[in-house]
Design a protein around this nucleic acid. Structure first.
Length: 842
DNA sequence: TATATCGCAA
DNA sequence: TATGTTGCGATATA
C-alpha cells in the first residue's frame, strides 16, 4: 500500500470541521402540545406476578444470546482467512511462530505515523510521543476500546462493540479503513480490513425509531429492509395495512445546537452568520477527527431512508431477533420531529458553559441531529450530572432519572434546579419518602433503581406511581451509575419503562463479572470515554499521587495469620500494628500539611479500633442519619476535625465533603471499581489548580498476605488510566514519630490478644460499642438484641474511651511539634519516595 | 416515630 | 486463585 498524504491531512480536516460547526440555527420548531394519552401500552394490564417470571426468563435468554453473539463475532475466529501479505521468514521467525509480524511491510515514512496493529487480535498500540498522537487518539477512542493508557504507549483494542459504537456515531466503513491506514506504520493487514468490513456491514444499518408514537424499523439500505421483512420472525410483525416501505430523507445535524456549548452562546449574535463562514469558536483548535470525517456525510446532503412500522409490543422481539441474525438495532430518537409528546420547558441557565470534553461526549450523542442511546464514561468529579442535564435540555421532553441511592436522587434534583431554568414543580422525586408527580403535562422524575424494580408488595402510593411511570413515554432515560444496571434485577428497568432514548453515565464501566458487555444491547454503545490523565493535566480534576505502602507483619501476627481462618485473616492483616503505625504517621503528616483526610476500611473491627485509638470520628452503616450529618458537617467546617474514618459506606452512599488525602487500610477483595471510585473522592479538590498541588492516595498493604494479590488486582484499572503507583516499603523517620502506637513488643502482643479475643466469638455485634464521644455508634445496625452486647461493650468502652481522650491531647501536641520540624520531615519523606521510585524503575 | 425485616448487590 | 458480610432501600410493625 503506497504511503498516502500524511501530517497535512488532519490539519486540513480540522479546518473543514470548524467551518461546519459554525453552521448554526435554533433548535427545531416549537412542537404543539398534544395530550393524547390513549397511547398507553397494553402492557399495563398484564404486568403482574407471572409476567415478572417470564421477564426473568427472557432476560436470561437475552443474556445468553448476547454472550454467544459476542463469541461468534470475536475477531480471532475470522483471522487470516486470506492472509496474503508477504510472510517473510527470518532467523527470529521460529521464536514468534504465528505471532511473527515482521512480514508486515513498514511504510517508508513510518516514523511519522503513530500506530501499530496486531493483525491477529486487533490490538492497536499508539505512540504517545508521535507528532500525530493527538489526532490518532481522537480517532482511536471513536473506533476502538481503550485498554491501557499509561504515559508513552497506549493500547486499544478493535472489537465488534467498538466498531459498533463507531458506526453508531456516524462513521462509515471506508472512513474507518482509510483513516486507520493513514495512521498505521505498516500496511493495513487484510485480516483487519475484512474484520472492519464485516462488522460495519451489519452494524448500524438498522435503526429503531419512535416517530409519532409509532415504532419504525429504519434503514438507508432498502435491501436490508427487504431481508428483514422476509425474516420469519420479523416479517409478520410489521403493522398490517402499512405494507409499503416508506421513504423519507434523513435530517442531518445542521441546525441542532447543544445548549451550553460555545456555539449556543453565540447563536443570537451569530444568527446572521452564514454557514461556511470563518469559525469564530475555539472548537476550531480542537482537532476532532471524528467530526471531520462526519463532515463528508453532509456533502451527500439528503440521504434516503426506508422504514416499516412495527407494533409497540413487537419492539423487544424485533430487537432480539435482529441481534440473533447479526444486525443489532440502534435506538434513535428524532425528538425534534416528535409532536406527540409534549415539550418540556427547560434550558440551561444563561451563561452556563460546558467543558470541551462534555461537549465532545454530547456531540457523539446528538451527532446526526437525533438522540442516540448509549453510554458516556467520565471520571467522578468531571461533571457527569451536567452532561445528563444538558442532554435533557437538548431533547426537551419528559425525563426520567434513575439513581442508585435516595441521596443521589436529592442531588440530581438540586443539580437540575442549579443548572437549568426548570420550574421546581416540574422536577418530581419518587422515593419511599416522597411520591410527587409533576403538575404539568410533562416533567422530570428522579427516582432510584430499586424503586422501579421492586418486586415485592407495593404500597398503594407507589403502585399508582409505577402505573404512571409505565403508562407514558419518556423522551430521555438517564441512568446514573449505569454499571449497576446489568445486575439481573436492575435490568428490569429497561423493559418496564418506555423511553425514546437512554443515556447511561458512569465513572467506571467496570465489573468483576462479565455482564458489562450486556450494556451494549441493553442501552447502547459506549459513546465517549474520557482519559483521566488528560483531564487532570487540563486541570478539570485534581492531580493525584498514588502510593502503596508495604507493611511488614510482626512475626507473632504472621504466625496467627497463617493459622487463622479466612475471616480472621482479614481482620489480622487489617490490624497489623505496622500498618497502624503507617496510618498514624500518614495522618500526622498530612494533617500538618493541612489536608483533609479520609481513611477507608471495609473491615469494621479495624475501622473502629483505628478510629478510636487515634481519637478520630468514623461513620459506618450503623451510624444514624443525624450523626452522619453531624460528623460530615464537622469534617467539612471544623478545623479540629481533619480525619474521617469510613467503612465502604463512603463508596456510594455518602455525599462526602472535599478531601485531599485518602488512605486505605482494608478493602473489598479485588474490586477495581471500588478502588477507582475511592480515588474519585479526591478528584474534586478545589485546590487542584493551585501551583503544584497534589492529592494523595495511599493503600496500606500487609506484606506477604493475600492483600498483596488483591491490591495489585485493584490497581489494574487506575494503572490503565495512567496512574503510577509508587511502592513504599519504609516511611521516612517513622520511628521518630511522637507517640507512635504499638511501639513496644508488649503493646503489640496485647493488641494481638485483644484482636483475637474480640473476634473469636466471631460476630461484630459482640463488640458493638456505646457512643464514644456522643458522635458515633447507635443507629440501625444488625446487632442481635441484648445478649452479649453488654458484656464486651463495657471492656471496649473503657479501654478505648480512656485511651482515646489521652490520644486526642497527645495528638494535638504532636501536631504542634510536627509543624516545627515540618519542613525537614517533608523533605526526607519525598526523598524517600523519590528513592523508591528510582528503585522501581530499575 | 423508631425499629425490624426482607431482598439484593458487591 | 475465591471469598462472605456489610450496607442499602422499601416496607411492615408497634
Amino acid at each position: 500500500m503506497p504511503p498516502k498524504r500524511k501530517a497535512a491531512a488532519p490539519a486540513a480536516a480540522t479546518a473543514t470541521k470548524a467551518g461546519r460547526t459554525s453552521a448554526l440555527s435554533t433548535p427545531g420548531p416549537a412542537t404543539p402540545r398534544s395530550l393524547d394519552s390513549s397511547m398507553m401500552s397494553e402492557a399495563d394490564e398484564e404486568l403482574d406476578e407471572d409476567v415478572t417470571e417470564a421477564q426473568k426468563e427472557r432476560e436470561e435468554l437475552l443474556g445468553k444470546e448476547a454472550d454467544e453473539f459476542v463469541n461468534n463475532w470475536a475477531i480471532s475466529s475470522k483471522r487470516f482467512q486470506n492472509q496474503g501479505e508477504g510472510q517473510k521468514r527470518d532467523a527470529a521467525t521460529p521464536y514468534f511462530g504465528k505471532r511473527d509480524f515482521s512480514g508486515l511491510p513498514l511504510k517508508a515514512d513510518h516514523h511519522n505515523r503513530p500506530i501499530w496493529i496486531d493483525p491477529d487480535k486487533g490490538t492497536i498500540v499508539l505512540e504517545r510521543f508521535n507528532v500525530l498522537a493527538e489526532q490518532a487518539t481522537d480517532f482511536l477512542i471513536t473506533i476502538a476500546e481503550p485498554k491501557s493508557r499509561p504515559a508513552f504507549l497506549h493500547e486499544y483494542a478493535l472489537t465488534t462493540h467498538s466498531l459498533y459504537a463507531a458506526v453508531s456515531v456516524g462513521l462509515r466503513p471506508k472512513d474507518i479503513i482509510n483513516t486507520l491506514d493513514r495512521f498505521l506504520k505498516t500496511a493495513l493487514p487484510s485480516s483487519i480490513n475484512n474484520f472492519i468490513q464485516q462488522c460495519t456491514n451489519s452494524y448500524g444499518k438498522v435503526k429503531l425509531v419512535l416517530k409519532n408514537n409509532k415504532y419504525f424499523v429504519e434503514s438507508v439500505d432498502a435491501d436490508m429492509l427487504q431481508r428483514l421483512l422476509k425474516d420469519e420472525v420479523i416479517g409478520p410483525l410489521r403493522v398490517q395495512g402499512s405494507d409499503a416501505i416508506t421513504t423519507t430523507y434523513a435530517p442531518t445535524m445542521g441546525g441542532l445546537v447543544i445548549p451550553g456549548t460555545k456555539n449556543a452562546a453565540g447563536v443570537r449574535q451569530a444568527a446572521l452568520q452564514k454557514p461556511g463562514d470563518k469559525p469564530t469558536t475555539d472548537t476550531a483548535k480542537d482537532p476532532d477527527l471524528f467530526a471531520a470525517l462526519n463532515e463528508e456525510d453532509d456533502d451527500d446532503d439528503k440521504e434516503a431512508v426506508h422504514a416499516f412500522e412495527i407494533g409497540d409490543t413487537a419492539v423487544e422481539t424485533v430487537q432480539k431477533r435482529c441481534l440473533d441474525i447479526g444486525y443489532p438495532i440502534l435506538e434513535e430518537y428524532d425528538f425534534r420531529n416528535d409532536d406527540v409528546n409534549p415539550n418540556l420547558e427547560i434550558d440551561l441557565q444563561p451563561n452556563t458553559q460546558i467543558r470541551p470534553y462534555q461537549e465532545k461526549s454530547l456531540s457523539k450523542m446528538f451527532g446526526n441531529g437525533r438522540a442516540k442511546s448509549g453510554i458516556i464514561v467520565l471520571p467522578c468529579g468531571a461533571g457527569k450530572t451536567l452532561v445528563g442535564i444538558t442532554a435533557a435540555c437538548t431533547i426537551k421532553k419528559g425525563v426520567i432519572v434513575l439513581c442508585t441511592s435516595s441521596m443521589s436522587v436529592v442531588q440530581w434534583r438540586q443539580e437540575f434546579l442549579k443548572w437549568s431554568n426548570i420550574n421546581p414543580d416540574d422536577v418530581a422525586v419518587f422515593t419511599a419518602e416522597s411520591k410527587n408527580k409533576f403538575s404539568g403535562s410533562t416533567g422530570i422524575i428522579v427516582t432510584t433503581y430499586s424503586m422501579v424494580t421492586n418486586n415485592r408488595e407495593r404500597s398503594h402510593d407507589s403502585k399508582k406511581m409505577m402505573d404512571f411511570l409505565k403508562g407514558r413515554e419518556w423522551g430521555l432515560m438517564l441512568l446514573d451509575e449505569v454499571h449497576v444496571v446489568p445486575a439481573d434485577v436492575f435490568r428490569r428497568v429497561i423493559s418496564s419503562i418506555k423511553s425514546h432514548s437512554k443515556l447511561g453515565l458512569t465513572a467506571t464501566l467496570l465489573r468483576e463479572d462479565d455482564k458489562i458487555s450486556h450494556l451494549n444491547f441493553l442501552i447502547g454503545p459506549k459513546l465517549y470515554e474520557a482519559n483521566w490523565m488528560e483531564l487532570s493535566q487540563q486541570g478539570h480534576i485534581a492531580k493525584v499521587q498514588c502510593a502503596e505502602v508495604w507493611c511488614q507483619m510482626p512475626t507473632e501476627f504472621y504466625d496467627e495469620y497463617l493459622r487463622a481462618n479466612a475471616r480472621m485473616k482479614r481482620t489480622l492483616y487489617a490490624m497489623n500494628p505496622r500498618k497502624f503505625q503507617a496510618c498514624q504517621y500518614l495522618i500526622n503528616y498530612h494533617e500538618a500539611r493541612g489536608d483533609k483526610i479520609i481513611v477507608f476500611s471495609d473491615e469494621l473491627y479495624s475501622l473502629k479500633k483505628y478510629a478510636e485509638t487515634l481519637g478520630k470520628v468514623y461513620i459506618y452503616g450503623g451510624t444514624s442519619q443525624s450523626e452522619r450529618m453531624h460528623i460530615l458537617a464537622n469534617f467539612q467546617h471544623n478545623p479540629e476535625v481533619n480525619t474521617l474514618f469510613l467503612s465502604k459506606i463512603g463508596d456510594t452512599s455518602l455525599d462526602l465533603p472535599e478531601a485531599t488525602c485518602l488512605i486505605q487500610i482494608s478493602s473489598h477483595f479485588g474490586s477495581r471499581r471500588q478502588e477507582a471510585q475511592r480515588l474519585g473522592r479526591i478528584l474534586r479538590a478545589k485546590r487542584r489548580n493551585d501551583e503544584g498541588f497534589n492529592a494523595f492516595f495511599y493503600s496500606l498493604v500487609s506484606k506477604d498476605t493475600q492483600e498483596m494479590y488483591y491490591s495489585s488486582k485493584r490497581q489494574a484499572f487506575l494503572v490503565d488510566q495512567g496512574y503510577a503507583f509508587k511502592v513504599i516499603t519504609q516511611l521516612a523517620n517513622i520511628e521518630n514519630t511522637p507517640n507512635l502506637a504499638f511501639a513496644s513488643p508488649q503493646e503489640r502482643r496485647e493488641l494481638l490478644q485483644m484482636t483475637l479475643v474480640d473476634n473469636e466469638k466471631g460476630t461484630m455485634e459482640d463488640v458493638e460499642t456505646d457512643d464514644l464521644f456522643g458522635k458515633v455508634g447507635g443507629g440501625r445496625g444488625r446487632k442481635k438484641k441484648g445478649l452479649a452486647a453488654r458484656r464486651t461493650a463495657g471492656t471496649l468502652g473503657e479501654l478505648s474511651g480512656g485511651q482515646d481522650m489521652a490520644y486526642i491531647e497527645q495528638n494535638k501536641g504532636a501536631n504542634k511539634q510536627l509543624k516545627k520540624n515540618q519542613k525537614a520531615e517533608r523533605d526526607t519523606f519525598f526523598k524517600k519516595i523519590a528513592r523508591e521510585k528510582e528503585r522501581n524503575r530499575g
